Amino acid sequence: MFNNIPPITRNIIIINVIVFIVTNFLFREQYTPYLAAFYPFSPFFHSWQIITHMFMHGSIMHILFNMLTLWSFGPVLEQSLGEKKYLILYFASGLGGFFLFNLWNFVEVQQISSQLQTLGFNVDAYLSGAKGVFMGSSESILKQKGLLESLNGIVTTPMLGASGAIFGVVAAFAALYPDAKLMIMFIPVPIKAKYILPVVIVVSIFLGFSGNVGGIAHFAHVGGALVGFLLARVWRKQLFNRF
């Protein structure tokens, strides 16, 4: 059955599984800090991470969900779009997820930095590697420490996973086949793709803004879905004019 999956989708799944085994069971400490994607202005960021993070997963459930979703939607798109466009769609969606997620991170970092500077904390020196020096009253210092903890959370926590690319694939499927009926877990009746996609996007945006992240990069999902949907809309007319 696995051999019947088109080559691009099959190879992406194989690479993800191999990387998951290597980075989670063999050399986790050595590779994860270099292959997962850190905030671009973090000292831990490296340029290759904008690609390598798409092949990193933190748990079996994480990779299982992503690869099953790719296996469900990828073959149809690969056959419809052709290998070249499908590959462009996949990686462009992953990049879209990375950039939107970090655009939101940038906004948060600016807000936190502004508050810290108002309280007398030298953020620029701290981000350059200097030791943080707290100034002011005990109440002010306590607030600075809380803000600094939030800042450190953004700078030192990497994003990883193919979710941005996967959401792009799902969104592209919904754009090309809006009336296709899909079965969703815990929902007993099939629902058209054109109704599922907006709900998923709205929920992801809400969770991203509300801060109910739970270790999930919701804005990466939104960024990937937007890129996948837009590319599919651009290619849709050309695709169906061939028939």
Rank of each mutant, 00 (worst) to 15 (best):
L142R: 14
L182V: 13
V234I: 15
S138Q: 13
A220I: 02
A172N: 05
T52P: 07
I50H: 06
A232E: 01
L182I: 15
L176C: 12
Q111K: 15
A180V: 09
T23C: 13
L95D: 00
P33H: 10
N66Q: 15
Y177A: 10
F167L: 12
L119D: 11
Y195C: 02
L142Y: 10
E83T: 09
L142K: 15
G58E: 07
A217S: 01
A165F: 13
V133H: 05
W48F: 14
V155R: 07
V123D: 08
H62M: 10
V19F: 14
V155I: 15
R233K: 15
N152E: 12
N122C: 00
W104Y: 06
M159D: 11
K143R: 07
H218L: 00
V170E: 02
S204N: 11
I18N: 08
V203C: 01
F20E: 01
L68Y: 15
I216G: 02
Y34F: 14
F243A: 10
V155C: 03
I63K: 01
G215Y: 07
M54T: 04
F173V: 08
F38N: 08
G132C: 08
I21S: 10
P190R: 09
G223P: 02
V222E: 04
R236M: 12
T118R: 08
L231K: 03
I154N: 08
V202D: 00
I5R: 00
